[in-house]
Each structure stands twice: as C-alpha cells, then as structure tokens.
Design a binder for these strands. Structure first.
Lengths: 221, 221
DNA sequence: TTAAAAGTTTAGACAAAACTAAATAATCTT
DNA sequence: AAGATTATTTAGTTTTGTCTAAACTTTTAA
C-alpha cells in the first residue's frame, strides 16, 4: 500500500461511517481535495488489489482487507495523536497534521509498542475510539449537544469537527474532554444552547452545539 | 524536499564524511542501491535547487543549504533511534529501519519537542553524535579497537558498522555502549585482539575490532 | 601516447498519481 | 418519457523517480 492508496482507504472508511450508502466518486474527490477523474483512476487500482469493490457509476465500498487496512491507519493516527498531546505537550488543535504523516509509518512493532507505552488508551484527544491490535473498536455512545435535553447534565466526550479553528474556540472557552456541562436552555429560534460548566454560563451557536459530543451523567443523587 | 531527495542528501552527506573527496556518481549509486544514470538525474535536480554543486564527470558536493538539510534529517534519524530504544524498548539492532521512515516526518516542532522529551541526548544508540537545533555536532573522539594499545583500558563509545548482524554479535557477547574493555593482547598474525571486560575474556576478529569504537580511560589510580 | 577499461551522462521508456477536456451514463424535471 | 442537468468515466498529458542501452569522458596501462 502506497501513501496515496492508504489515504484513499482512510477517506472511504470515514465516508462509509458517515452515511451507510456506497461512497460516490464526487464525495471521495471532495474528501481527498482532488478531481473526480483522479478518484476513478485510484479506485480502479484499489479494486485491482481487492481493497474495495467497485461498480462503475455505482460507487465504492471497502472490502474486508480494505477495511482492515484502513482501521490500521486510523489506529496509528489516533495513537500518535495521544503521543503528541500527552508526551510532547502539543495542543489538541496541533496534533492532527503531524499525525497525518506519522500514520503511514510501516511497523507493526512500532504501533504496538507505542500503544503499550501510552498505556493502551481507549480514545484519542478528540474523543474518537482507538482500534486495538486486532482492529476491534469500542464504540462510545454519545449525543451531540444539539440533541441534549434541557435540564440534564452531561460530560464532554468528543468533537465531530476537529478543525483547528473549532478546537481553538473550545480552548478559548475552557471546554475540554471531561468537562461537565449542564443544559440551561435551548433556544428554538436559532437552535443556540445556553450551557453551564465550572460555574461559567455560555451561549453556544447551533454550529458549535452540533459539533460537540456529550454523554449523559447518571443522575442518581 | 521530497523523500527521495532527502535520501540522496543524506547519502551524499555520509559519503563526504567518509572520504573528503567529491562524491562520485558510482559511489552514490552503490550507497543508494540504484543505477548510476538515476543518480545523474537526481543530482541535476538537486543542483537546480542549489542543494549540491555538481560538475559533470567530477562528482558532487553538498552546498551549505544541502548540508544543513542533510544534518536535519540525520538529527531526526538519531533522535528517533533514541526514542525507539529508550522509550519503546526496541533493541539496538532494530531501531535503524524504523528510524529511516521517521526521519522524513516534517515538523520542526515535533523534532524539537522530541529532543526535549528525550532529555537532549548527545549520542544515538550506536554512539553517533546528535546534531542540535542549529545543526551543530559535537564530535566525540574515538579510536577503533584495532588501533587500541595493548595493556590500556577503554570504554566502548560506538560502532562503525550498524548492521543488524554486527549488533546482534555484540549483544550475544554482552558488549554494549559504556562497557569497559581492557586490551589483553593484539595478535599480529591475523590482527585479532584478545580483550577483557566484566571478567570475561574474548578474542575478536580484525573485522569486529575495526568496527568497534573506544575511548581511552584516564588511568590515574 | 594511444588503446582499452572504467566511469559517467544522455536518450528514450515506464509506472504512479495527478490533471484537463471530452464523452458517456444516471437522475431529475416537467 | 424526453430533454436538461448532474455525476462519472475515458483519453490524453504531466511530473517524479526509476530503468536500459547507447554514447561519451576520463583514467589506466602498455
């Protein structure tokens, strides 16, 4: 698997997880920041290698081998993100770009030793689950803030959009993974939400609310 | 700088350090495990980019920019080797191949944070000096075991040949960096050397002796 | 001091991964 | 259900880094 091929597999993997339909050429082109014709070429190559199944004009899906490979790349990406944040003190908006490079290093031993060194972390700095050696992924159940219920209390467990700008916004407002958040008020007019955490009250836009993942706190007290 | 270009710069750097003459096309081809014609092509590209100066049929030398870049790659390589050995418990014969990949990760921040995380190590697991942020290299003075004097005591500070086989040989014979070694006898017939360390006596071949670097211990006692 | 040998470069091809422009298939509209 | 729109594929180029074979320098040696 070349670097380019791995990036395509990863992109297909992400798109499959988002929509459950076959992945369209255009969607892939958008995700890969490239042209549809380039995507067609690459898809053919991946189909040759039995990494995807592909019917012209119908879209593409990962084969078992393709998914296994994509998961390995995702595992490496997320482990390196943890390393960068926890060991090298990168901030969470900086880890992604470097991890994009590190995820392509080929060495099973390196990956597994790194996993061990980090203490077998379950999630990366954005709250996404880290696949284990065998490719098993423990799904975390989560609700977006925009779906949370007024009056209830939640813990922040992840972000949907891990763009640098969004993460910097959260940093600036002192929201991080693990922050306990109460839903004070949901405004139907513009879908903004007033929340409270660490004695701070804050109104966040619909856009922010959609991109912040929470988990309800069991309220037996 | 692409991956291929970086590898050429590194190879030229190593060859320059070995012989002080201009680097010949054939020597580079040998080092890069490729054909002379490919080397000529690449050299032209590097000359275009002012990374080397090149006179056809005369060989090639690194420019200031080229050397600076090569040193950066070497710095990354050696830092990653330390990381793999000290943090991830790789053995010293395993670190090289993975470091060959990691040395091409592009992030000044990563490199410098890694350096800090490792406590600013001065040498890599093979005893080679690690350039600092500014590209300065602190040369270690060392003698090969084949040049050592009978009767004197030395410390092992490095290896010339970092091939897996040689390192495994040293491991099997319990020689590592830091091992204190006495020169018992130099056999003129085959240039083998009888040494003593940790109460073990061992005869090593000329080949081994040439590839083991030592530093004399000041003997005021 | 030339002829042979060794070393190096040029010319022409190829594979990977991208692109543009043109052609073709699928879907939407009315 | 036909035409218009959108999505996708094909055909033909480009760039990077490699290769082989042929041509050309430089060095060696008689």
């Amino acid at each position: 698997m070349t670097l380019a091929e791995e990036n395509y597999l990863k992109a297909i993997y992400h798109l499959e997880n988002q929509s459950s339909n076959d992945v369209s050429t255009n969607a892939l082109a958008e995700e890969m920041q490239t042209k549809a014709s380039s995507v067609t070429d690459m898809i053919k190559k991946l189909a040759e290698k039995n990494m995807v199944s592909y019917i012209p004009y119908q879209g593409v899906t990962l084969s078992k081998a393709g998914r296994a490979h994509a998961v390995k790349v995702v595992r490496k990406h997320r482990l390196w993100e943890v390393f960068l944040l926890e060991k090298l003190n990168f901030s969470w908006d900086e880890v992604h770009d470097v991890a994009e490079q590190l995820e392509h290093i080929k060495s099973e031993k390196l990956t597994d030793k790194l996993d061990e060194f980090l203490g077998f972390p379950k999630v990366d700095p954005h709250g996404d689950p880290i696949p284990d050696q065998h490719g098993n992924i423990e799904q975390i159940d989560k609700t977006s803030l925009s779906d949370a219920q007024e009056g209830l209390t939640y813990v922040c467990v992840g972000v949907h959009d891990s763009s640098s700008d969004f993460l910097k916004y959260l940093d600036a407002n002192h929201i991080s993974l693990g922050t306990t958040i109460q839903i004070i008020h949901k405004e139907p007019f513009d879908n903004s939400v007033k929340i409270k955490f660490n004695a701070i009250e804050l109104v966040v836009s619909e856009n922010v609310a959609k991109n912040l993942f929470l988990q309800e706190v069991s309220h037996n007290s």
